[in-house]
């Protein structure tokens, strides 16, 4: 069960460590996706995979390919940046969609449309918390 290219130990160890960290964080995230009961709780679980799960695997890939091609290889960072920038957009949209659907059904689990402060205060200045 060996890889087809030659690498020294000081490359193999950090790459392996980052790979295992990333893979098991991702697995933990999906275990949470299955185990948690409420949708809003489940929304937190996949962020494990999309933050350091992806991050660690991308770092491992960067270390390995920088060694193999004997030049700094950073194109994996594109995936890192892409996932970092797009995940908030998708999860925000999903969260808002779920909130909208729950509100329109009148679910008691979610806060109603007018969370504090009430809309009559609109014109006055916001109190500085």
């Amino acid at each position: 069960m060996s890889v087809e290219y030659d690498i020294p130990l000081w490359i193999a160890l950090p790459v392996s460590a980052f790979l295992l960290i990333g893979a098991f964080l991702t697995l933990t995230g999906t275990i949470g996706l299955i185990r948690l009961r409420i949708f809003y709780d489940r929304l937190h679980a996949p962020t494990l995979g999309s933050s350091w799960g992806t991050g660690a695997i991308v770092i491992a890939s960067m270390i390995l390919f920088s060694y193999l091609e004997s030049r700094p290889v950073v194109h994996e960072i594109l995936i890192g940046i892409f996932v970092t920038v797009t995940t908030p957009v998708t999860f925000m949209l999903l969260g808002r969609a779920a909130l909208y659907r729950d509100r329109s059904e009148g679910s008691p689990l979610v806060p109603p449309m007018d969370v504090a402060p009430p809309p009559s205060k609109e014109t006055t200045a916001e109190p500085a918390s």
Partner: peptide, 16 residues
Amino acid sequence: SGAILGWSVLIAQLAV
């Protein structure tokens, strides 16, 4: 060291 990386990749792939 190739074997270490090979097994880690295999375990990581199974986890993913």
